[in-house]
Design a protein around this nucleic acid. Sequence first.
DNA 1: TTTTGTATAGTCAACGTTGAATATTATTTG
DNA 2: CAAATAATATTCAACGTTGACTATACAAAA
Lengths: 180, 180
Amino acid sequence: MTRLMVLGLLRNGPMSGYQMHQMLQMLQSDKWAGILPGSIYHALKKMEQEKFVEIASVEQTGNRSKAIYRITPSGEQEMKKLITESLSISSIAFPAPLYTGISFLAWIPADEAVAALDQQIAKITKDYEEMKYGEEQKQQEGDLPAIVRLSFDNMYDHYELHLSFLQKLKSEIVRKREED
Amino acid sequence: MTRLMVLGLLRNGPMSGYQMHQMLQMLQSDKWAGILPGSIYHALKKMEQEKFVEIASVEQTGNRSKAIYRITPSGEQEMKKLITESLSISSIAFPAPLYTGISFLAWIPADEAVAALDQQIAKITKDYEEMKYGEEQKQQEGDLPAIVRLSFDNMYDHYELHLSFLQKLKSEIVRKREED
DNA sequence: TTTTGTATAGTCAACGTTGAATATTATTTG
DNA sequence: CAAATAATATTCAACGTTGACTATACAAAA
């Protein structure tokens, strides 16, 4: 996934690893992709060996230098392969850490569980609102392509599904505590 | 997550790495947790060094031997810490590979994209049905605790949300192709 | 103008995951 | 009963991720 992201970004013109990192932050794709700088540089080094990318130039600023990478023809082939792959594999993702925690809920006091869930709810709610706000801004710069619209809506659906699940969990824990 | 799973399993009595692997498969938790044998053995070795688990005994079957691990008191403390952690961190998960593929959809022919999505739809549909079937079986062994019920329902919601998203994507790609 | 802070640009060791490989025992099939 | 197949039990090298660390350049404040 990191590899596809890197190749995809380079497909719109040469750039440095640092620029990629900045771009991912601007596009909010750090929210769902979570690609850290280290992974970008690693992917660049690796794909340079494999001849999928190459250094186009090295820009100097005083004593500091940055490497500008470019995608190669065989890199473009690889990119197409990765796109098809990423569409065909199962991308379904479950909140695995939460499920694991739930499996062993009985081993901690109900109060602690509720407090922990409240922390998560707060964090997700904040992310959700930031995303909604960030998108309203974009809305004003003309309307988005239908597919982008669909993807954003899907992200919102995920936030809503997850928040609703967390709330139900909390209620059930509280209900059960009252029961005893 | 692997660590919590391992400690949690050991909390119900000593067992071997191989038994853990089998148990995860039986509980369908391989569906959402996706913990491979290698990770289990690695976690056991690591946590043995950290004194969270220890070898309770070594069983021999002819020439082959298996190690039975047991959780230690400090392992139980660690487990509680990990439970709280897993409930408090943000567990929201997006279908990142799919989103990445979508971002670069324009670089492959629409037909290939649709074919790839169809593959994914087939796979997910199959998983979804297997899960539904597997659960009907359990249903008959008395009803499940409310929290388990909630978690299963959440898994179904995830399957349905994802399938619906994939269908919408397909439609939009087809619509756009017709448009030209 | 020096210091403080922040943006730029990247490296690297430690860590966990993956999947192929290994080796032994148990079971089925011809 | 021999051969093939499956189940048991684990190892390990290759790989990617993480996050802390380094180091330079630039801007702002004191």
